[in-house]
Structure formats: C-alpha cells, structure tokens
Amino acid sequence: MRLINTVKNEAVAALAGGLIGFGDPLIKISMEAAGLNNFLFYDIIGWFSLLLNWHFLLGMSLAFVGSIVYVIALSKGKASIINPLSGGASYITIVVLSNILLGESVTVPKTIGIFIIILGIYLLSHFSNNKQLNNEVRGEHS
C-alpha cells in the first residue's frame, strides 16, 4: 500500500481500472457455471446460485478493491481524466482475461483497439497538468 504514494496518480487510476476489469469475465464464468443464459436481476434463485460460486465472489471482491483504489485516485486528480483512464484500462484486463479463461479469441481489431487505448492512457498521463509528488523530477516538461 505504501507504493500508492510513490507512483504517479494516473498509474494508480490505471491499476484501479485493471482491477475493476477482473469483475466482468469472472462473473461471466460464474453465470455459465450456474447455467444462467438469460439472467434477470429480479431472479432471486439465480442470485443465490451466483453467490455460492467462488468465481463470482472473487470477481466481485477484486472489483470492490479496484473501486477503493479508484476513489483514492479520484481524490488526487481531475475526475474527467481519471474516469477515462480507469475505464480504458479495464477493457485491457477484460480482453486478456476473457481470452485466458473463456477462450474468446483476440481478433485484429481487439489488438489494435488495445494499443490505441494504451496510447491514449500514455498521452493522458503524460500531458495532464496534475500536481506531481516528485516536483523536481517532472519540473522540466509541461
């Protein structure tokens, strides 16, 4: 946890998004395991079968930890930058994890899209005018 204070805030936001992205593929696995093809949110028996599945619990708890890290990042930076940063980073985890766990193929558009998102995250964290912790290091540019 001490690491969070030393790393740049945009990296914390990207980490938060990455953790939140663990939620969707793991929840998808748990839904397939519970045999829920057409899940409705008022389906109480469906919710119980999900709550007994460790994939679902792991996904939800990782997303919860991610949300806490997201709030930490949000308290330090502009909301209009932190939101796209963590949102974009979550797609990277979703694509990689759904390839590993669910066997969804990584197509060419997905690869290009991920590279463009990484470029966007880099540009945002490089150009944002947020106060930095190590002022002497980053005093030259911006």
Partner: peptide, 30 residues
C-alpha cells in the same frame, strides 16, 4: 459535468487523450 460544476479545465492535449481512448474502445468492439 466536471467542467460545469467543479471548474475543472482540460487542455487540448487532455481532450485529445480522452478522444483517443474513445476511438480505441470503438475499434476494440468492431
């Protein structure tokens, strides 16, 4: 909203970064 209610100002570079992420998401789902 953040520009309106929190007076957060974005430079054109930051707007460009946000737009690039949006383009990436659109290409990702093609």
């Amino acid at each position: 909203y953040c520009n309106r209610f929190l007076k957060e100002k974005l430079s054109w570079r930051e707007i460009l970064g946000i737009l690039i992420i949006i383009v990436g998401v659109i290409i990702l789902t093609l």
